[in-house]
């Protein structure tokens, strides 16, 4: 098993990768000894605000120094020119040369990526066409909309034909239609390049990725295929809906066989994670009769990544206390 693992050529690999910002009292360990294993395909990178995603990406592309540990892109040292030849990077909130035209910008980026002028122009037009920006190619980027900028950013990351795309929240600041568009494009691209993408929107990650890595407070919480993660979590959540949810929540919270219970804001139903599911199933009918309440529904849902994410993050926090 381990031998087989070693043989895999990871797209992105890191060992005890660590970033400490600042010195002395202001020292902050933003990324703490993380071991990344990104295989070909689309790999999601999840974590709440300040978890360390951007910091990790910036180390992988050589923008900031690595405090400790090491990182590689397909066997090449992260940050080296050779490794950077293999990656295309879209930063979080990318900033462009506002006075350059879309086409001019892509050609410039292509040439910096090692393409000859002619080749860069050809690739640029191809990408402009692919991202529906061809008509805007002679307009200044400063006059592009947010969605157009995001797409020109991805095009610029792609122009030197990298093997691994590193996208830091590519759908941030986009409207729902824009999101769907960008996600669709990323999915299509994954035939040719591997994608390592971060996002806050878990449903998006769920649509795109097979594998995910979740981090919190700079540490990896879980890293596996979404399927496996779901399997290991599926049996744990129960959803109860009655005509007096608040009262039921109070009662349930105080039972010792309940590990967690809360009212989900979206649907107003009680989400329960029991320590002992059998006891929960038994007590619900009793509670209903006792309180003369009406049962609207009681079931185990197919878990979304969002639920699991919430669950994992809250568990972690409990552990830390």
């Amino acid at each position: 098993m381990t031998q087989k693992k070693l043989k895999i050529n990871y797209e992105v690999w890191s060992e005890r990768l660590t970033k400490i910002y600042g010195k002395g009292k202001e020292e902050l360990e933003a990324v703490s000894k993380i071991d990344l294993r990104v295989e070909p395909g689309i790999h999601g990178f999840l974590g709440p605000n300040g978890a360390g995603k951007t910091t990790t990406y910036n180390m992988l592309v050589g923008a900031i120094s690595i405090t400790e540990g090491e990182a590689k892109i397909r066997e090449l040292k992260a940050g080296s020119v050779a490794a950077k030849q293999l990656i295309g990077f879209l930063p979080q909130d990318p900033v462009f040369y506002e006075d350059m035209t879309g086409e001019g910008y892509l050609i410039y980026m292509g040439q910096l990526g090692g393409l000859q002028a002619k080749e860069a122009r050809r690739k640029a037009q191809e990408l402009l066409d692919y991202f529906d920006l061809f008509d805007a190619r002679e307009r200044e980027i400063g006059k592009y909309s947010g969605g157009m900028k995001q797409k020109i950013g991805i095009a610029a990351a792609l122009i030197h034909e990298p093997k691994v795309l590193i996208l830091d929240e590519p759908t941030a600041n986009l409207d729902p239609l824009g999101r769907v568009d960008v996600i669709q494009k990323i999915k299509e691209l994954s035939d040719k390049v591997s994608v390592f993408v971060s996002s806050h929107i878990l449903s998006e990650i769920e649509q795109m990725c097979e594998d995910v890595t979740m981090i919190n407070h700079g540490k990896i919480v879980v890293s596996d295929s979404i399927k496996k993660i779901k399997k290991s979590f599926v049996s744990n959540l129960y959803i109860l809906d009655t005509d007096m949810n608040e009262k039921f929540l109070e009662i349930l919270k105080n039972k010792d066989f309940i590990s967690k219970a809360r009212i989900e804001e979206i649907d107003g139903k009680i989400h329960i994670i029991p320590k002992d599911p059998a006891k929960l199933q038994k007590i619900i009918p009793e509670m209903l009769i006792e309180n003369k309440a009406t049962l609207l529904s009681f079931h185990q849902p197919e878990l979304s990544l969002q639920d699991i994410f919430m669950e994992i993050m809250s568990k972690k926090e409990d552990d830390e206390k």
Binding site: N58, V61, G62, A63, V81, A82, K84, Q85, I87, F89, P91, D93, P94, V95, F96, Y97, M109, L112, G113, G114, G153, A156, H160
Partner: peptide, 14 residues
């Protein structure tokens, strides 16, 4: 400070 350098240094150029 504006942020354009971030994309520039991620390109394969020293």
């Amino acid at each position: 400070s504006s942020g354009t350098m971030l994309i520039l240094v991620s390109k394969p150029i020293s």
